[in-house]
């Protein structure tokens, strides 16, 4: 089965939008959680700092996803960062709990 140029473009854009929005949300949530856990000082302060920075991280992620050369690479970057953070979060929890 062969795809037309237009079909490839449309699927590429759809993938990127999904990576940017869904991946960006997961990435920024995870980094907010990590910031909240890792920052020294009061817990409330760290959580709110994490939350406030999450929008900056979200925006930067979206920009990175749309500047990366190929869609595959953009997906790989976001996916690997999410996985790394996810495991790091569990590793931290394992120690603190």
């Amino acid at each position: 089965m062969k795809f037309t140029k237009k079909q490839i473009l449309v699927s590429n854009v759809t993938c990127r939008v999904l990576i940017a929005l869904v991946g960006g949300y997961i990435l920024s949530s995870l980094s907010a959680i990590l910031i909240a856990l890792l920052l020294p000082g009061d817990k409330i302060n760290s959580i709110i700092t994490g939350l406030m920075l999450s929008f900056v991280i979200y925006t930067v992620t979206v920009i990175v996803v749309f500047t990366t050369k190929t869609t595959l690479r953009a997906g790989a970057i976001v996916f690997s960062l999410c996985t790394l953070m996810y495991f790091f979060y569990h590793y931290l929890n394992g120690i603190t709990v």
Binding site: I33, K43, L51, M52, S54
Partner: peptide
């Protein structure tokens, strides 16, 4: 725009509060 996002962050990013608080 940024402060508007911040005002609603407890709802838009509620999983973060779930995980930390």
């Amino acid at each position: 725009t940024y402060s508007g996002l911040i005002l609603l962050m407890g709802i838009s990013f509620s999983p973060v509060i779930d995980a930390t608080y």
